[in-house]
Design a protein around this nucleic acid. Structure first.
Lengths: 158, 158
DNA sequence: TATTGTTATACTCTATAACTATA
DNA sequence: TATAGTTATAGAGTATAACAATA
């Protein structure tokens, strides 16, 4: 049926699995009660900020595939908690440069420890080596790096 | 830092990747405009119904990790479109047995072809073999089978 | 005029609790 | 009384459009 032999019988179902696993992760994280009170997107946002260093809001939004207008509220909360800092770009005063605050780095580490625990429960069927493989594949699929560049939706022949 | 050598430096970040990939998949699917008009959970629901055959609503809800009350509306839509059939369990007239309708099977196949296309764009960084590995790992992580059994949240030592 | 961030609004998804009909 | 499904409601999450300040 598939015209492409490199995409076998699994085609079309992997995303469903990912979606479901993502759901399980969210629910499990909620059940465990993330201590830092960080929600998924806050968690990812802090991660990107740590990897990337200071970035403009729009860049961050596109990295997170989040609409800029939604990022506003997210950053308001994070800034209110002292986890990130916003400052104007001197070069272009329209821009806000967002940066991870020391408290944010600490909160992120705490959340990571907690998430490692949740993850451990969720992936308990997999060995440590398999988890590394999984992690590597996901990372490669996402562009060999954290969600950084605004890779446009594939123009591909679909 | 990690006490468990089997869970290396990747610990705590895999779920974030999964979450992000899930988001990308959703957005990409929306962008492509799923032809059958099937939303993610409808898609997964039909998949489970095909794999499992007729099941009680509650069983389906727990398989999907979806609250039974939310499943009602989902099934209403699917039944309204003629994709699934609900009938009373003769043995216990409180139960509704849900079953995939012929139209549902067709819609599912169409959606799968479409999703295979979306997936192809999303996982284009991976070879066919790698995608199989990824699929296998995800499937094993989810219990070596489709979301079927109501595996309770891990009691694990967290 | 174009762009960055913001506000306002609406729509979807989901969880919770109260209700019904069967058991 | 307990259970399966349903309804109603509230709260996130997210997309869209309109707006302010700056370029």
């Amino acid at each position: 049926m598939t015209s492409d032999p490199t995409a076998p019988a699994t085609a079309g179902t992997t995303l469903a699995l990912i979606d479901h696993l993502s759901r399980l992760g969210r629910r499990s994280a909620e059940a465990h009660g993330v201590p830092s009170g960080l929600r998924p997107r806050q968690f990812v946002a802090l991660t990107v900020l740590r990897e990337q260093g200071p970035v403009a809001q729009q860049t961050l939004a596109s990295a997170l595939r989040l609409d800029p207008s939604n990022l506003v509220g997210l950053l308001n909360e994070l800034e209110g908690s002292g986890l990130v800092v916003r400052r104007r770009d001197p070069g272009d005063r329209r821009r806000h440069i967002v940066e991870l605050a020391p408290d944010g780095a600490r909160a992120l580490e705490a959340a990571e420890r907690e998430m490692a625990c949740v993850e451990d429960g969720l992936l308990r069927a997999l060995s440590g080596q398999e988890r590394e493989v999984l992690h590597g594949l996901l990372r490669r699929a996402l562009g060999d790096q954290l969600p950084t560049c605004a890779e446009a939706d594939p123009p591909g022949g679909c």
